[in-house]
């Protein structure tokens, strides 16, 4: 998988974790606020490590005494460990956002499907991120720009509510892409960038639709609007990869919560092809 593209395998830990429902202690070795309500935590295993993650996969992250939530991996450093980007919207996620450097959390995973950037070999790449949806896409973008010769033109389109809600602002500018667009719904004083919905940036991106792969993550209506737009422009539906979200409890395909029609998103997702996802997302309350 993408491991070969991006990750120099970290020194193999002595013990690989075997019990899928039991969290493994990981220490917060760095923490940086991304936005007023979103924090990225850089985590290293205290002793034993989880198996390697690929971009798009997620972990169940445990906050002591509060519970656990699914969080996509937002960075897979070549030096080992991983990073998660968490937005504080509930008891567990707020607890995770409040974690300090040195604190120890519980992690289990990796779970689910990856973006599978390697399938886009030699093709144009269009990454479309809405809000915190940039976090799961970040390791994919890093892989894509790290090995420019593997792909055609790489485009990164980022939408957010306000300039304050943009993730990875400094890194975004440094990505060597054919086109990087950033747009906000509500500009603030001093914002000189684009204003408008992220799909409007598709007009500016440089890609040849029949020879392109797209990777989309964000709120579900944004995913639907973006995927339809891409398909309308001529990108094949199975090459529009989207990351979906449903309630998730076990992440091991045994609790039934993350069903979306015929799939269990923890096992068959979160990343699925738009050709398969579209019929499920078009039924209300499925």
């Amino acid at each position: 998988m993408t491991t070969e593209l991006s990750v120099v395998a970290p020194p193999a830990p002595a013990v690989r974790h075997a019990e899928p429902r039991l969290p493994v202690p990981y220490r917060v070795i760095a923490r940086w606020p991304e936005t007023p309500d979103t924090v990225t935590l850089r985590l290293d295993p205290v002793a034993e490590a989880l198996a390697d993650f690929v971009p798009g996969q997620f972990a169940m992250v445990h906050c002591f005494g509060r519970g656990e939530i699914p969080v996509s991996v937002s960075s897979i450093p070549t030096t080992g460990g991983l990073a998660h980007t968490v937005r504080g919207v509930g008891a567990v996620s707020e607890g995770l956002c409040a974690a300090r450097v040195g604190d120890v959390l519980g992690l289990r995973g990796p779970y689910g499907t990856g973006w599978e950037l390697e399938r886009a070999l030699g093709q144009d790449v269009v990454v479309v991120a809405g809000g915190i949806g940039l976090a799961p896409l970040r390791p994919l973008i890093r892989d894509a720009v790290a090995e420019p010769r593997r792909h055609g033109r790489v485009n990164v389109l980022i939408g957010a509510r306000t300039p304050d809600d943009l993730l990875s602002k400094y890194e975004t500018r440094r990505w060597a892409t054919a086109y990087t667009g950033v747009t906000v719904d509500r500009p603030a004083d001093g914002w000189s960038g684009e204003v408008g919905l992220v799909t409007r940036l598709l007009d500016r991106a440089r890609f040849d639709p029949p020879r392109s792969w797209a990777f989309v993550c964000g709120p579900e209506p944004m995913i639907r609007a973006t995927a339809r737009d891409l398909v309308h422009r001529g990108v094949s539906g199975d090459r529009v990869r989207v990351s979906l979200e449903r309630n998730m409890r076990c992440a091991t395909a045994t609790c039934g919560h993350c069903q979306l029609g015929p799939v269990l998103l923890c096992r068959d997702g979160p990343v699925v092809g738009w050709d398969r996802a579209e019929p499920w997302l078009s039924v209300r309350e499925l």
């Binding site: 809000g131 915190i132 719904d185 408008g196 799909t199 409007r200 964000g218 709120p219």
Partner: peptide
Amino acid sequence: AHRLQSARTRLLDLYAPYGSGSAL
């Protein structure tokens, strides 16, 4: 039509904390 659709989608304020993911 394109601008109206974009404006409508923006009107939903999708990136606000609600409607954007896990409740936990």
